[in-house]
Structure formats: structure tokens, C-alpha cells
Amino acid sequence: MKQFQYQRASTQQSVLDAISKPGTKIIAGGTNLVDHMKHGIIAPDKLVDITHLPLKGITPTKTGIHLGTLALNSAVAEDALVLQKQPLISMALRAGSSQQLRNMATVGGNIMQRTRCTYFYDTTMPCNKREPGTGCGALEGYNRMHAIFGASDKCIAVHPSDMCVALAALGASVIVVGKKGQRLIPFNEFHRLPDDHPELDNHLAKDEMIIGVDIPDNNFAKNSYYLKVRDRQSYAFALVSVAAALELSGTTIKKARLAMGGVAHKPWRLFEAEKFMEGKPVSEDTFKQAAQIAMQGAKAYENNAFKLKLAPASIVEALKHAAGIV
């Protein structure tokens, strides 16, 4: 790891001042950034430590819940308000990582975490995300973990977060602040697809920082489920994950929310499938049809064709759990 300068920020403004200079990165939990620095993926000249800013709160708002960007993943997962109103988020968080890492990782860091693509991590390999123009190692390489939706020939990596899949499903917003002030980015518009610029994970401007997330109130609490399918029972990234949330009226689906992880460069919200389910009866058949709609446009590569089966199977399974018909 290259030597760097360290600054502990005491105000938001000092963070914004610091990141306006090239080579400066924000550090909070550090679980992703320190890992990247150890791997030589990035080598910042300066780190600005934001963990002493008062942005840890998990608080009720008029319209929902606010998660401060520094709220720890473990704290959010076990917060009484979150468990009561947005259990899907807790389920997703607990499906990710280990308790030790959740004790370090923050909400903002989770949103900002970068792909676990092996070609991104290995600096001897080509990777357009790490080093634009070097090519995509995964495209014709080992791509078992890779995207089936929204990939480009520049990058087929997936976003690794579980929490973000739940936040995408629940229509959360990311609150960011920059020199020009504060703005709200709908969760589904925060992360990008790779297109021609896989080096950009999201739409956060270089001089902006995340200060929190707002999750709107909903009626999904009783019928939410996060399913994560992975190569071992815990402490592994998803082959496929599904966040499913239903609002039921008797046995009829009033509202549905569905998003997938492990399938795209961003948390993959399934709007069409959601729309299809609304007004339909709760049944395995409804869910299977929704899954088929969800899979439209999916494209597999040499090693991940199984996701074309695993993804719809997981959608059905998650929806059945959410609806309580398992």
C-alpha cells in the first residue's frame, strides 16, 4: 500500500474541500477502500476520515426512515424502527458479509462498494473498470459470477451489495451533498450500467458525498423477503439474490416490489414484473409468470448460463416466502 496523508474531518465542509482535490478519497468503514488499497486497485494520496461527523443516526421522518450515511450496517440491521417498518433491509444486511465487517461498514460505504469481479481485483488482468481501455477480462474469461442484465462489451461485472437490492426495491433515495448544495437521487438512478464507462459505478459527482438515505413508508413489512443464493450458507457473495415485498389485500396482490442482486452492474429493479403482479392473486403461477417477465432481456455468458434458471427460480421462491405460501 502506498503511503498517504490522513485527515480527520470535523465538518462536512472540510470533507467537500478535501475531495475537491484530485487523489483524495473519503474513508468511513474502510472495509472496501482499505481492501482496494491493499490490492493496489487504487492508491490515493490522501484519505479524509468522515467517521467523526454526526451522520450516524437512524431516525424517523415524516415520510419514512432516514439512515445517516455513517450508520453501521450492523446497527441498521438491528434497529427497532428498521425491523418494524422495513424488515427487508434488515434481512438483506444480515445476508451480507460477516458481523465483524457489518460492525465496520457504513450505509454510505455499502452503497459505494465496488464490484467483486476477480478481474477488477487482479491488477495483472485487463479490466475497463479499474483501468479504462485495457479490456474486459471477464467477457471471455471466467464469468460465473457475472451479469445477465444490462452489461456491455466493456464490462459485465455485478454490484455486490445486498442492502442496495433492498433499498432499490423499496424506492429509497440517496441524499448527497456537494459544493452546489444538497440533492436527492432516487435509488434506482444512483448506480449506473456500465455502457462505455464502466469506470463509473454511479452518478455521484466527484465533488459530492453521500450523507444519508431516505426510505419511504410502505405497507410491505408483513410480506417481505430477501433470498440470497450463494455457494456456501453464509459469508459469500450472491450468485443471485432477490428482494421481494408485497402488499396484500386478502389473497390479492395490491402492490409488489421486486429487485435482484448478483445479476447486473446495479441493483436490478424489476418494474415490469412488479406491474404484472399487481391485482393478481397470490399463487405460485402468478410468481412464475412474473419471474418469466423479469427474465426478459437476460443474456448469459460462458459460465453463468445457470443464472437464467437460478434467477427466475429464486424470484419465485422469494415471492412465495414474502407471500407466506411456502
Binding site: 460465473r144 443464493v229 455457494d231 450468485l239 403461477d285 412464475k288 409468470q289 418469466q292 445457470f306 437464467l308 434458471k309 437460478l310 427466475p312 427460480a313
Partner: peptide, 10 residues
């Protein structure tokens, strides 16, 4: 799981 997963198109 990839070696065992099932999906029947409806």
C-alpha cells in the same frame, strides 16, 4: 447450486 438448479418454463 448451478449444477442442480431447476427451472421449468410455464
Amino acid at each position: 447450486p448451478d449444477k442442480l438448479v431447476e427451472w421449468d418454463v410455464v
